[in-house]
């Protein structure tokens, strides 16, 4: 297992380098300029100077190499400095966002907590809703509960989040007045009152995303359960005279969870990636909102760094999913 992990990690390095170059070129070649959002009242000479000050007029490979150096050396070094008070990265240029001139990593650091709380909660809520629905739907296949579950999943799949989110806003914020429409990122949870406030402002984005997540996962759970339910070993368990609870929850569920856990693990990078639409809609200043903002403003360092971090996370969680599979399923062993 250890050698397998190490080998996979080593293999990931060249892959990621290639990915980073591809991302860089794609982002760079995409049409648009960092100056496109600037009012026309600013004359061309000034624009040119602004572009030069950003370093955006350098040839693409110079910028790529600079970015590589910043990403793999300057940023870790400055992180290290931050922890241990060393001065490794002193005088080094960190990756700066063109939009805000702030270091990209401190922006990410600022935003990650929101994304993790909101999107993470939505993911967990989604899973918590999905598993029982999937399990019971499969156990009572074609029952009215199963039909309702199918309908729920279909809605969750097909209704885009901007639609369900807007619907929730109109219903719960405008009409009922229960929840705020704009997420207050400054809110600190200190007591019950602020906790309640936090819960209220998380309610709508979590519902919106939770619905979408639950739809997908409940389907996986259901089909995996159905597949296992027909297996002989389940009949064996029944023949042993095990109680129905044991048969379903111990035998069927445990085996059915293997692929579902993998799917869930593979979905985790998307938590970090945030949810572009939902975050934007509810004003959650997460990573997704940062990404879309950066794309709109042609903030190449920001887009590039975020895209690359996602790539790393995806590669990492693929590995984690494989390892999990190995841990959960005794039939699979990695050398």
């Amino acid at each position: 297992m250890l050698t397998f992990t190490l080998r996979r990690l080593l293999l990931a390095v060249p892959t990621l380098l290639v990915i980073s170059l591809v991302i860089f070129l794609v982002v760079d070649l995409a049409p648009g300029s960092p100056m496109s959002e600037i009012p026309l009242t600013i004359p061309p000479e000034v624009r040119r100077k602004m572009i030069a000050a950003l370093g955006a007029d350098q040839p693409v490979f110079v910028r790529y190499l600079l970015w590589l150096r910043q990403f793999f050396w300057v940023e870790p070094a400055s992180l290290f400095d931050g922890w241990f008070g060393t001065a490794l990265a002193d005088g080094e240029q960190r990756i700066l966002s063109w939009q805000s001139r702030s270091p990209v990593f401190s922006i990410i650091g600022q935003r990650l907590p929101q994304t993790l709380t909101v999107i993470g909660t939505a993911y967990i809520v989604g899973i918590l809703i999905a598993l029982p629905i999937g399990i019971y739907s499969a156990y009572r296949q074609y029952s009215w509960f199963d039909q309702a579950g199918t309908l729920f999943a279909m809605i969750g799949f097909s209704v885009p989040t901007f639609f369900s989110g807007t619907l929730f806003i109109l219903l719960f914020a405008v009409w009922l007045g229960w929840f705020p429409t704009k997420y207050d990122t400054q809110l600190e949870v200190r007591d019950w009152a602020s906790f309640w406030q936090q819960a209220r402002q998380m309610a709508m984005p979590v519902m919106t995303l939770g619905l979408a997540n639950a739809a997908a996962i409940s389907r996986y759970m259901r089909s995996s359960m159905l597949e296992n339910m027909g297996m002989d070993y389940v009949r064996t368990a029944r023949a042993k005279g095990m109680s129905e609870r044991t048969v379903v929850l111990k035998h069927v569920l445990r085996n059915s969870l293997i692929p579902v856990v993998t799917v869930i693990a593979l979905g985790i990078p998307s938590i970090f990636g945030g949810a572009i639409v939902t975050e934007n809609l509810f004003g959650v200043n997460g990573i997704g909102a940062a990404l879309i903002g950066a794309i709109q403003a042609n903030d190449i360092p920001m887009v590039q760094t975020l895209a690359f971090i996602f790539a790393v996370l995806i590669v990492l969680f693929n590995l984690i999913a494989d390892i999990l599979y190995g841990l959960l399923d005794p039939r699979i062993r990695y050398e």
Binding site: R101, S102, P103, D184, T185, Q186
Partner: peptide, 27 residues
């Protein structure tokens, strides 16, 4: 100029308000 993050996000001014917190592209 661009590297002075603190100054660029929390400039000291003479206006009616002063910046106490700045979250980039948010609040």
């Amino acid at each position: 100029a661009p590297t002075c993050t603190d100054a660029n996000t929390m400039p000291i001014g003479t206006g009616p308000f002063k910046v106490t917190g700045f979250t980039v592209n948010d609040t």
